[in-house]
Every structure is written in C-alpha cells, then in structure tokens.
C-alpha cells in the first residue's frame, strides 16, 4: 500500500488549529448568497452528492426498499434530475438494498465495524466488513476507536483503519471520526490525518447518533487536512459531512466551503458526499420553487 511505504508523520505533532480563524471564516461563508442559475446548479450538484441514509434500529426491509425507490425516483415531475450517489444502510440491509438498486447507478453503502460505537474486537470488525462487501456493498463507512484515540494509542487507531481498508478490497472506505466526541479541532485534525495516512478514501464527520454532528466549522478543519495531505502525497481524499444537514441553504454553504478550500476538482460525488435523509426533499422543494416561483409544501413530496 502506498501509505505504508512513505514516511509517516508523527501524529502527536499534528498542526494545531486556529479556532478563532475558523469561526471567522465560517461567518464570512454563511453571509454569502447564491442565487438564480448558480443556485439551481448547486442544488442539483448537492442532490447528486447525497448518501440517502436510513440508520434506525427499527428499519425494516420494506423501509429500505422504499428508500431505494426514492433514490431512483427523486421527483418524477422533474425530468432532468440527477440520482443520488448512494443509499446508506445497516449491514443486515445490504442485500435488500443491493437488489432494490439493481440496474441503477446508485451505490450501496453500508456502515460496519460495530457502528455507531465501534466497541468490539478487531476480528469481529474485519469479519463484518468482509461480509458487507461480499453481500454487495460498494462503500463501507467505518467508525474509529475513539477510546483508543483519547488514550493516545494512535498506532492502534491507524492499524485498525489500515486493516479495515484491506478487508474492504475493491470497496471504498469512508472513515467516521465522530467529531462530536473528539472535543477539540486539534483532535479532529489529528484524527483526519491518521485516517488519511491509513488509507481512507473518504473522511466523514459523524455517525448521526451523537450531537453535535456535522458543522461547517469542523468540516473546514477536515477539508484543510485533506488539502494539506494532498500537497504532501498527491492523493485526493473525499469528504463527507453527515448528520444535521437538513436544509438546502446549509447544503449550499457546504459547497461554497468545499469550492474555496479544495477547488473544482473535488466538486463531484466521487470526492464529496452529504450524509442525510431529510435534505433530499428540501433540495427538491427548492428546485421546484426555482422553476415555478411558488413556495412548496412537504405534503407534495414523497417521504422516502
């Protein structure tokens, strides 16, 4: 693996983050206003970057099939819409989702490694990863061991991610840092670097089970880590903010941040995703509003 042959940085000395600078930058991004054609393009781009997600303990096969149908038919009244990037489910729903999405370009993503806590042994995590991939998952969302991270055992965290990456085979690996539990931006920056050097294809903010989930601030810290990693190694890593992004305006602010930090090359579903469930309908309502000039109601959009 490329990461293994290069000299690894000492993660104890990851760069520190200027917290006030981050807040100031975000304040300027959120004051921006995107309108008209640019807004429609941004809304469509955000739709194409969606990982439509259902991660409830009460999920049924029926619910997952319904969500997959929604992924393929976002709003049939509008003919020129993109489809979402992926449907994200629990491991035992992978085969259901795979079957429901057959013949479409929508990918199946599965959480694994004892999501959302990750509190189990490595062999079980690897076994779970291999199983979801063999059942057809194109992408695997793993969680890092936050306890080991706080204990300062960065090597363990690194090795675990590397082992899961190996177990993924061809499947893409997204590494969830669970930034809501990492306490400081410095920790987020450090965890981002560990994940990327260990082979992550994407780094992801949150499981959605812990508050705060994704924020613009924490996303900026991670995007800057991705940029610096790219300058160091030449490898492009993707970014996925997840949890708490429920309206179109906020989604567009994330895209502005992405464009200004990483640039055009990252503005595709291959390198940026939103993990969300209710965001899809708000994006659709905004697109219809832009086309008709009339404010929309959730009553006229399918729930999933």
């Amino acid at each position: 693996m490329a990461a293994a042959t290069q000299t690894l940085p000492d993660f104890r000395y990851s760069p520190v983050v200027d917290q006030v600078g981050v807040a100031d930058r975000i304040a300027r991004v959120t004051a921006r206003s995107i309108k008209k054609e640019s807004k429609i393009e941004a809304l469509k781009l955000a739709l194409s970057m969606l990982d439509l997600t259902t991660l409830d303990a009460k999920d049924t096969a029926g619910k997952v099939r319904q969500l997959c149908y929604k992924a393929r038919h976002l709003h049939d009244d509008l003919p020129d819409l993109p489809t979402v990037a992926a449907v994200c489910v629990y491991p035992n729903m992978v085969s259901v989702a795979k079957k429901a999405l057959e013949g479409s370009t929508v990918k199946v993503a599965s959480v694994a490694t004892a999501f959302p806590t990750g509190m189990t042994s490595l062999d079980i995590k690897l076994e779970e990863t291999r199983r979801v991939v063999s059942e057809g998952a194109d992408e695997v969302d793993m969680v890092i061991s936050r306890g080991r991270f706080f204990a300062g055992d960065y090597n363990y965290v690194f090795d675990e991610i590397a082992a899961v990456k190996e177990a993924c085979g061809q499947a893409h690996l997204k590494v969830i840092l669970e930034t809501g539990e990492l306490e400081t931006y410095d920790n987020v920056r450090r965890a981002s670097e560990i994940a990327m050097y260990a082979g992550a294809d994407f780094i992801k903010t949150s499981t959605g089970k812990v508050k705060p989930a994704a924020t613009l601030e924490v996303t900026l810290v991670m995007l800057e880590a991705i940029r610096d990693y790219y300058y160091q190694t030449g490898r492009m890593v993707g970014m996925k903010p997840a949890g708490g992004i429920s309206n179109a305006k906020l989604a567009i602010q994330y895209l502005v941040l992405l464009k200004e930090t990483l640039g055009e090359a990252w503005m595709t579903p291959q390198y940026f995703r939103f993990g969300a469930s209710s965001l899809a309908n708000d994006l659709l309502m905004q697109i219809v509003k832009q086309k008709t000039g009339i404010y929309q109601s959730i009553d006229y959009f399918s729930k999933d």
Binding site: I294, Y295, Q296, S297, D299
Partner: peptide, 8 residues
C-alpha cells in the same frame, strides 16, 4: 400573490 400561492 405569495400569501395565496404558497403551497404550504
């Protein structure tokens, strides 16, 4: 116009 057209 907006009071009477809003779908919600």
């Amino acid at each position: 116009e907006h009071f009477s057209s809003h779908m919600d």
